[in-house]
Every structure is written in structure tokens, then in C-alpha cells.
Design a protein around this nucleic acid. Structure first.
Lengths: 199, 199
DNA sequence: ACCTGAACACCGTTCAAGT
DNA sequence: ACCTGAACACCGTTCAAGT
């Protein structure tokens, strides 16, 4: 009954810290994350995090990196396969993106802030680029089929993702001017396809 | 030689605090803002800010609010007048927006974070809506001239601004994949106008 | 290797007190 | 009204020490 009070976090303290930090992030914002408080929650001394992260900034960066990795997976699953209808693929990608953004708003904000920093780790930039690399494939295929204007496909995809990203930023609680984002996505996709259709 | 060491910040301590806080924000990020450090810089005791702001959060909110007010002014100047060419008005609005975003990246991030908070002050939401209210007028006029598809003009303007907002978020140091934002704006405007043209 | 406690230099906020 | 110093309960980070 006493020995049980010693989880000691053999190998997974790092994991536990990241998990607890993400909880705090979504609950009380980035400012509410405290290494000492996390240590208390996990029952380790306040200097233990130091073994796994060089400092608080490093923990936040690791959190952002994991965010990008999950983001990448979600978009990868939604990206679809060659041969599927262009509009349907874009719609799935868009819903995946918006879904992630609405589910983890504070994490997404942290991810972008971290990536923007002048001294951002290279891994962060790469993870971001990987995640945003799924849409261009769909555009390239549509170009080959003559449904979309020529040009760098990743630049075309950029326009769609920018729009969605901005839409989420301008929304409050998943709504813009009372209209749910879900309903706006279809409109955006239609306009995007129209704008990219060869004249 | 001694009396001069007593600025005492008669009435404008509030102003001075906001100014110093914005400097710190753009230099070292939101996390680098400290009430005590600001007080030190301004030569007042560390409890003086309390007279002007209920707490640190309140100071940050005030900073965000002023940001939205300046943002509103910048967009208002760029919005142009009825009778001017639609595309030229959009381009000016877009450049004004992107210009602000690149000049005050940390402030913009703070502005949106503050506005998004569940307990955000109403004034913040209103200031945001005011600032984003300039573009719809241009869209409404273009609709009257038959250059743009019918529908709620502020919803049409939303698409353009979302795209720009997202573009800035995805950029690093004013560039996306090595291409300066300035050069992308024209492309975005063209696509937007194309997408909104009556079929 | 991994974790610890003590120490240091900071925070934000509160409060009784001064002019 | 406006500002002050002391006090309180926190921080992140460093370091010598323990197993």
C-alpha cells in the first residue's frame, strides 16, 4: 500500500509531461502551463522535467512538433487516393483541417506561433511542410485531368488552405457571423474550384 | 539636477505602459512582457500599473484593443470610395492588411488570441468587427454594378480576408516558399474576382 | 542514468500606508 | 487620486548531492 506511491515514471515521464501540458494548454491557455505545476501533478520533483527538456520553451516546442505530427496524420488520412473525384478530395481535406482546428484551437495557435519564431527549430518547419503537403497531390491530379489551371500545385493548394486557415481564425466557437463553418466549407470549395477552372 | 528625476508620469502612465508593452511584445514575444520590468523601465514602483489595469491580462487586452483600433484605421484609409475600380479597391485593402500583419506580427497574434478567448471583453469583438467591416462596402458596390455574384457582401468579403489572413499565417518573414507576399496578393485578388464573377 | 532539495533571481497580486 | 514598500505565494533555472 506504500510501494504503489512510487510510479517513478520510469521511461515515460516525457510522454506524461507532454500529455499534461497539452491538457493545461487547452484548458487554460499557454500562459497557464507551469513546469512546477506539471511536476506536482505527476508526482515528481520540479527539476525532473529538465532531464527531458532543456527548458520550458523546449517543452512547448516539443508540444508544437507533436501537434504538427498529428495534424499531418489527420490530413494524410483525409487526402484520399488518385482516381477519386477532385471536389470530394478537397472537401475531405478541408473538413479534416477545420475539424482539427476546432478540436485543438490552443494547440494550433501554439503550433503556428512556434513555427513563426525567428529561432524556430528546423524540425518544426519540416513537420509543418509535411502536413501541408497532402493537398498539392490532389491539385496535381486535377491539373493532369484538365480540371484545374496549370501552375505549381502547391501554390494552388496554398490558396485553399490559407482560406480555411483564415476562416478558422476569424471564427468564434466554430461560427462566423452565426453561420457554422461546416456550411461555409462547401461554399469555399465551390469558389476555389471555380477560380481555378481553366478559362 | 535632482528634481528632473521625477517624471511621475502624471497622467500618461497608462499610455507609457502600453507603448513599452508593445515594444516588448514585438521584440521578445508575449511571454517576455512583465509588469515589474515595464515599471522598472518607466521608473515607477511595480504596483503602479495596478492603478491603470486590473492585472496583466487587462493590460494585454488593452494592447489588443488598441491594435484593433489602429488596424481599423489602416483598413479604413485603404478602403477607398464608391466609384473607384473594384479590383483597385480590393488590392489596396489587401495590401493594407498584409502590411499591418507583417509590421506587427506579434501584436496581430495577440489580437486574435485575445478575441478568441471564451471570456474576451465585448469591446474586443466589436473592434474586430469594425475593422473587418470596410471590405463589404466595396463588395456591395461591385454587386450593384453586376460585377459580383449576389449574396451577403460581408460573407463574400470574408472569403478574401480569410485567404489573406491565412496567407500571412502560413508565411515566414513575409514569404511563402520563397515568393514574397506582395507578388501573391495580385494572384489571390484575381482568383477571388474570378470566383465571384457571375457565371 | 535518473531524480532530489536547496538556493537564486525573478514573477503577479494584495494590502496597509503615505502624500 | 495616485503612488509607495513590504509581504505572499508563486515561477524557471542552476547546482551539488544522492541512488
Amino acid at each position: 500500500m506504500k510501494a504503489a506511491t512510487r510510479p517513478y515514471h520510469h521511461g515515460h515521464l516525457r510522454e506524461a509531461l507532454l500529455r499534461a501540458a497539452e491538457d493545461a494548454l487547452e484548458t487554460g491557455g499557454a500562459r497557464s502551463i507551469s513546469l512546477r505545476e506539471l511536476s506536482r501533478q505527476l508526482g515528481v520533483s520540479h527539476t525532473s522535467p529538465r532531464r527531458h527538456f532543456a527548458g520550458k520553451e523546449a517543452l512547448l516546442d516539443a508540444l508544437a512538433l507533436r501537434g504538427f505530427e498529428r495534424f499531418d496524420e489527420a490530413l494524410g488520412r483525409a487526402a484520399g487516393k488518385p482516381g477519386q473525384e477532385f471536389k470530394s478530395r478537397l472537401t475531405k481535406l478541408a473538413r479534416a483541417y477545420v475539424g482539427f482546428a476546432l478540436k485543438h484551437p490552443a494547440l494550433l495557435s501554439l503550433m503556428f506561433d512556434a513555427k513563426q519564431r525567428a529561432d524556430a527549430p528546423e524540425a518544426l518547419r519540416q513537420a509543418s511542410e509535411r502536413a501541408f503537403g497532402h493537398a498539392p497531390a490532389a491539385f496535381a491530379e486535377a491539373q493532369a485531368a484538365g480540371e484545374v489551371v496549370p501552375g505549381d500545385p502547391s501554390r494552388l493548394a496554398l490558396v485553399l488552405f490559407s482560406t480555411l486557415l483564415g476562416l478558422v481564425s476569424m471564427s468564434t466557437g466554430g461560427k462566423v457571423k452565426g453561420i457554422p463553418l461546416d456550411r461555409l466549407i462547401g461554399e469555399i470549395i465551390d469558389r476555389t474550384i471555380l477560380g481555378f477552372r481553366p478559362r
